[in-house]
Design a protein around this nucleic acid. Structure first.
Lengths: 165, 165
DNA sequence: TACATTTCAAAAGCCTATTTTGTAAAAAAT
DNA sequence: ATTTTTTACAAAATAGGCTTTTGAAATGTA
């Protein structure tokens, strides 16, 4: 909340982060066992890491197909002008629309968003709203429908990355 | 594990699913309060929903920038032939490579994967490995580097979707 | 050496998860 | 309408984990 203290990421802290990333619902005891600490020591370190903002926001995947009518799409936006002010306006608008589940800024004023809508009609209408709004300065929208999710996101490839510090 | 029993998704179950989706680390007591049930009743319903596979796989977001050296990219694959057998081979290969964090099948033998690598060099090398393997039948690879993640995935827009049943 | 700091494990108390039980309401059957 | 069955809930009880406190060991520092 206040600042963001820096914590030295030794082997144990790294193991805690890697474990919690994939298993947010683990009990403190199990976590302690996996990283080789007593429950109390593990609890302190985990609490410190969480409060320092190293990890946050526990979520759960849902079986969308069984629960909701929906379509998935990859929506690409091209802005008319790629400058900081135009980008900020556009990004703020996207932030407010939950159907655009995330947003990546690519090269040359392009954005890509992984999008979920109740139907293709709704998706189409949503894209129209965006492109009809002159304040957002969207030159082009490209919608690519998702046929199938062949691999689900299950976390970052931590074992392949290089730890900082 | 065995089958997948169907549970009627009344208002309370819907509220449980929507809440757990965004707050996987909630205690059973808090969850019970939010959905308006006693802890025991809430526990039973939540357990039943989990065991029936309605939700699964609790994860936690990490502050990647502070922890890891990494680059993000959107990688697009075009297969030489779009038939079930070619697709299955390709999909199985992607499944085994953790750097490809997810994979979406689009129209006409195209795939898109959100990818994380320790460096641009590593990303380049990884893409080469894929395209050099004749078994995978990849005709073309397009790599689009992510400049910035302007919106983080925080879950599905459940309030915008239509519940099934 | 002496001191301060850090990190841990053990113990204690508190709180929560989980099971069990009984009851009330709803549904089905007679 | 009455009985039976089923379902869902809350309350109570138990078991177990969480969280704090404490002191000791290890590490670092003057």
């Amino acid at each position: 909340m206040t600042d963001k203290p820096t914590i030295k990421l030794d082997d144990i802290n790294r193991k805690i982060l890697a474990t919690v990333h994939l298993n947010a619902d683990l009990s403190n005891q199990e976590l302690a066992e996996r990283v080789g600490l007593s429950p109390s020591a593990c609890f302190q370190r985990t609490k410190a890491l969480r409060e320092a903002g190293y990890f946050f926001n526990a979520q759960t995947d849902m079986d969308l197909d069984r629960i909701f009518e929906h379509v998935l799409a990859q929506v690409e936006f091209t802005l008319e002008s790629n400058n900081a002010r135009a980008r900020k306006t556009f990004e703020a608008a996207i932030e407010e629309i939950p159907e655009f589940m995330d947003c990546l800024r690519m090269n040359e004023g392009e954005y890509i968003s992984f999008t979920c809508c109740p139907s293709t009609q709704a998706l189409n209408a949503l894209c129209d709203t965006i492109s009809e709004n002159p304040d957002l300065g969207v030159k082009n929208i490209k919608v690519r429908m998702v046929m199938e999710r062949t691999k689900w996101y299950l976390g970052y490839p931590l074992e392949k990355l290089k730890w900082k510090e």
